[in-house]
Simulated assay, not measured.
Amino acid sequence: MKVVFAGTPEFAACALRALIDAGFEIPLVLTQPDRPAGRGMQLQASSVKQVALEHGIEVLQPLSLRTDAKDPQRAEEAAAAHARLLSLDYDVMVVAAYGLILPRSTLDIAPCINIHGSLLPRWRGAAPIHRAIESGDVETGVTIMGMEEGLDTGPMMLIERVAIDDADTTGTLHDKLAALGATMIVEALRLLSRGELPATPQPEEGVTYAAKISKDEAKLDFGLPAVDLWRKVRAFNPFPGAQGSVNGTAVKIWNAEPAQGRGEPGQVLSADAAGIVVACGDGALRLLQLQKPGGKRLAAGEFLKSFPLQGLKFE
């Protein structure tokens, strides 16, 4: 089979590596344009682009795939990408966390199959892993689905479930789902090549949407129940990082757990090597790993050596 691949972050790169290792012919990769990253804000290629270049695969990075885009540059790049896709006569496009909308003109060239990190129809949209943890879901998974113009509305082809452990963060759960998705897409294409890949319409019940994570969500409201904040800390690790403020200093909170305690929300009830216990709207939260501006992530005991918190309050 001739497979065009479209994806951008590491989640997608895992799938691309698996397809290459499985021997599929991949004549072209689509990925997002290079973006500034790191402290020096130097342009950095996406994880998918790096894998493609390592294996000598052609890469296209259009700003859009919509040939009717109002911006002339976007429309021109989309037209060039569309022409290149038409010239390839490929069998299927595999899409994973690409970041661009595929217009009807692209979907009509060949079947498009998506690797989605949730149990559809729950958590359609941009941030299914974050939202599953934030909402307290006990399980999630990967759905291999056919693509159509609606947002993650296409038929389900393969589904695998994964338990969400209490210790899981978005980072750890991402890695589990990326590895699972990579295995599943290889199996899906093998089934497709034999004409044996099933396609089941999504149920109308149970639809939820995973809105994109914004940095504004990082600010913790200690008036909320401790269990809600615990989930947010895990959901926002590694991005954007949960955050509190003490005496005007922003403090990132990377690891925490529910604890016993009662007091005014935000009040530090105790602070020692075992953790920093902060009163919440219901219960308390024990902060286990923190980071001050310009510093490193530190366990609570080490953090307290340079940032005493006893008797203070998180705002």
Rank of each mutant, 00 (worst) to 15 (best):
L28R: 02
V29A: 08
V29F: 10
L30I: 12
L30S: 08
Q32N: 09
P36H: 11
A37W: 14
R39G: 10
R39T: 07
R39V: 03
R39Q: 09
G40F: 12
M41L: 15
L43Y: 12
L43W: 11
L43R: 15
Q44R: 15
Q44V: 12
S46M: 06
S46N: 06
S46C: 11
S46A: 13
S47R: 10
V48T: 14
K49A: 15
K49M: 12
V51D: 04
L53G: 00
E54F: 06
H55M: 13
H55W: 15
I57L: 13
E58H: 13
P62R: 07
S64G: 13
L65A: 08
L65S: 07
L65K: 07
R66T: 07
R66F: 11
D68G: 02
A69H: 12
A69E: 11
A69S: 14
K70F: 10
R74L: 14
A75W: 04
A75V: 06
E77C: 01
A78P: 05
A79Y: 00
H82L: 15
H82D: 08
H82M: 13
A83Y: 02
R84Y: 05
L85S: 02
L86T: 02
S87Y: 03
L88D: 09
L88M: 11
D89S: 13
D89M: 00
Y90M: 10
Y90V: 05
V92G: 04
M93H: 03
M93Y: 03
G99N: 09
I101R: 05
R104F: 00
T106W: 08
L107G: 02
D108E: 14
D108C: 00
P111V: 06
C112M: 02
I113R: 04
I113E: 00
I113Q: 00
N114K: 05
I115K: 02
I115F: 03
G117N: 02
G117V: 00
L119T: 04
W123I: 06
R124I: 05
R124G: 06
G125H: 04
G125W: 02
G125K: 05
A127G: 12
P128A: 03
I129G: 05
I129L: 08
I129Y: 03
H130Q: 11
R131K: 09
E134Q: 13
E139G: 05
E139D: 14
E139A: 15
G141L: 08
M147C: 04
M147F: 03
E149I: 10
G150P: 12
L151R: 10
M156Q: 14
M157Q: 15
L158K: 09
L158T: 10
R161L: 02
V162L: 11
